[in-house]
Design a binder for these strands. Structure first.
Lengths: 252, 252
DNA sequence: CTTGACCTTGACGTGGCGTCAACGTCTAGC
DNA sequence: GCTAGACGTTGACGCCACGTCAAGGTCAAG
């Protein structure tokens, strides 16, 4: 029996384009070619195509399929190799999924996290009195106004930015690099920029003593467990403090 | 601080080619371009690059990353959508892995399977007497000679071919299509071809009563549990029998 | 003769860069 | 001032398995 390219495609559940591709790469040449260039396929070609499509469904690449069909490779061996690669892929995906989940969690805790970090650890409402006591009465009002003025989009951005900074700190602390190392110092610079973005804090005042403020904050990160928790425990907070201190000494 | 393209690449753990690509697609334009065309990057660019690379590690595509960074999309929303897609991928992989495993098992049981199907269910050695009794003394000898003559490669091919045929029967029986349907009839045709390939059986003889042989085999598939097991139990064997019977009636 | 289904070859697009190729620029040493 | 070598540029192909036009030839039915 002889079929045209379309007939074969429909019979095997694929497309004529695919068959032409298989011809192009030499995987499945037509069993006969008409004088007009038309491709015709016989039963043997159908059989071969069915085997090709089976292996393709299993995810094998065309060269591997060719190797199997042309008996240069044992099917079981090829499939086992392919299985290894599939499993590796699956593990990669699993790790990526875990990372994405973790990142989403971090982002969603962003609000909460932010609440604890707006004033470097103090929520507007929850810690209002503490903030006023520590940095003065109008510091709270100014920063609160700034926060509301950001709008939803701006707040979103700010939260993501903050979460990212904290995440980087935790990663840096875990990396084993010294607080005086280049990455930690890069982070310290970003941290200071971040502090200066919030009006109402000494860091934002032109005449404020930035250096003292930064080093003082570092000490507070270690002393106050509410901060330490954000930076991955006491060890993390200590790392941040040391990095900030080194940065303040050398750059501010 | 201003860095050259290489410096930025090393700092962020990527390549200059990647940075040029990000420039080309508008994801990370250099903060400044020298008169000589050199790209220079400042701290803001470094920050942006770090966020890009983070999202890339999570598997996000460059357009999605651009949407997130340019604040057209909520990061958490983008990541959740991405997570869905990752999970779908993982499931696809899991199914594929299961299929590959199953196919490998089938192939490795191929020898055993074949032993049961060489004479449509009877191994040369194991069922020698039964074969001789059923199809005559020299049928065994001729088919045995044919089998040895195939050589390792030929036997391999034959086994794979047979396993494939049985696999297709099982799938067809499970598909719900009628035994008289086009797919089942296609399989029946292949099955008859397969039978005729083995010398020593009536199917291979020019003067043999092919029609009676085929319908008789179909009955035996149902009656003998050793066959039925290969075709997915009694229901499967019944399907094969009916398909063969319809084929014999109409085509032979 | 027309219509419409089917066939052909050729070429571009996909995603995220790796990898030449061909050539300009900068820095350091002689 | 020359040269070597490190670094920069743009341009273009390759990967992988096709999908998707585009432009045009072929064939059977009415």
């Amino acid at each position: 029996m002889e079929r045209s390219i379309q007939q074969l495609a429909r019979l095997a559940g694929t497309t004529s384009r695919t068959l032409r591709h298989y011809d192009d790469v030499g995987l499945l040449p037509p069993s006969r070619t008409g004088g007009n260039g038309y491709r015709y396929y016989d039963d043997a070609a159908l059989l071969r195509l069915q085997r090709i499509l089976l292996l393709r469904e299993l995810g094998l690449g065309l060269p591997a399929i060719a190797a199997v069909l042309d008996r240069e490779t044992d099917p079981a061996r090829a499939l086992r190799a392919h299985l290894d690669w599939l499993q590796a892929e699956q593990q990669r995906l699993a790790r990526q999924i875990a990372s994405v989940r973790h990142t989403i969690d971090t982002l969603e805790q962003g609000e909460e996290l932010m609440a604890q970090n707006m004033f470097d650890g103090f929520d507007h409402t929850q810690y209002k009195e503490e903030v006023e006591q520590r940095w003065g009465t109008d510091a709270y009002a100014r920063s609160d106004g700034w926060w509301r003025g950001l709008g939803a989009a701006g707040q979103q951005e700010w939260k993501a930015h903050s979460a990212r900074l904290i995440q980087d700190w935790v990663a840096a602390a875990a990396s084993g690099e010294a607080p005086e190392g280049p990455h930690a110092q890069e982070l310290a610079a970003r941290h200071v920029d971040w502090l200066r973005a919030v009006p109402g804090t000494p860091a934002a005042e032109p005449d404020g003593d930035l250096k003292a403020y930064v080093t003082g904050l570092g000490d507070m990160y270690v002393a106050d467990s509410r901060f330490a928790a954000n930076y991955g425990g006491e060890a993390g907070a200590t790392f941040v403090r040391d990095a900030l201190r080194a940065y303040a000494d050398q750059q501010l």
